[in-house]
Write a protein that binds this DNA or RNA. Structure first.
Lengths: 155, 155
DNA sequence: TGACATAACATGTTATAACATGTACTGTTC
DNA sequence: GAACAGTACATGTTATAACATGTTATGTCA
């Protein structure tokens, strides 16, 4: 008996353990989702990580967040948040201001242009979700979310 | 009620849909697994992608595979297989030979050194799996694998 | 208060990813 | 069999990731 994943990556041997298969399934599915998201965002000139930052800063509101806090909230950690924000500042999507109280901190805030871009991008991403994921059984998605949380808990 | 993921990325609002939460869960879990794998492989001087290539070429045996075939079998596609193989050839982990029958093809094969490295790496990866994932319920892992396959099917 | 540890960010460097384009080769069609 | 389209790979370039190290600011404690 061959699994779906086995066929996809044309592997002859069955997986040595279910844990291995689960791990590769997660990595492969994530790579495909990431790729699809990147393609959806491409016309707007931003990457999935940058989109993530915009959502984080929109959530933070006018008070903004310092670089370290942005890094902590990212779905996938990146080393080098300063330069990530550099690039977004150059695109006028965020502003940065050195904090008066603690001059080590640099507070980043989303700009009106950033908010506007988020508004433009959201329908495209929702369209993607609706056409590809919404058809899936809600119970299955919940099990998936729970299972993944259990794995992260174990790491 | 807040989900586990919501706490992890410190998001105030609940997710707009279960599909969104599932997607972010997958991406976050994959990022963590990828990071852990990269750390495990670091002492051996190879990346997860390079490890993937080695397993693919070991599976292919002495007849080897051309670059395109290697690319198709990768868990996460990379654009630029030639230079990925360049680097691995420089490390003496693979050899490349232009195919006599069809001179467009370049057949890549794993070297004894590559095989030896795989043998060294495998125990470390299995140790990681055993200590973090093996404790998880087998049924849950199976559901996870099935759910992820359903998502990939929908993409 | 001055030495010290720590935090937050900046900067320099290297390697790799990502993208676009170019080249050699093969099979096909007229 | 000459033009053509398609395949597989190579190469050049740019951007970003990854890593190490440096700098400035803050809090702590002798």
């Amino acid at each position: 008996m061959t699994s779906r994943l086995q066929d996809e990556i044309k592997q002859g041997k069955p997986f040595s353990s279910r844990a291995t298969e689960a791990m590769l399934s997660i990595l492969r599915t994530a790579a495909m989702l990431e790729h699809a998201t990147a393609e959806t965002l491409r016309p707007f000139g931003i990457t999935p990580t940058q989109h993530n930052v915009l959502r984080i800063l929109r959530g933070a509101g006018p008070s903004g967040l310092c670089g370290r806090e942005v890094g902590e909230r990212l779905v996938a950690r990146v080393p080098d948040v300063p330069r990530l924000l550099d690039r977004m500042e150059a695109m006028h999507l965020v502003t940065r201001e050195r904090d008066a109280a603690d001059r080590r901190h640099v507070t980043a805030r989303i700009t009106p242009k950033g908010l506007q871009l988020l508004d433009q991008v959201t329908p495209a991403l929702e369209r993607f979700e609706r056409s590809h994921l919404a058809q899936l059984d809600d119970r299955m998605l919940q099990d998936l979310v729970d299972g993944l949380a259990a794995i992260r808990e174990a790491l």
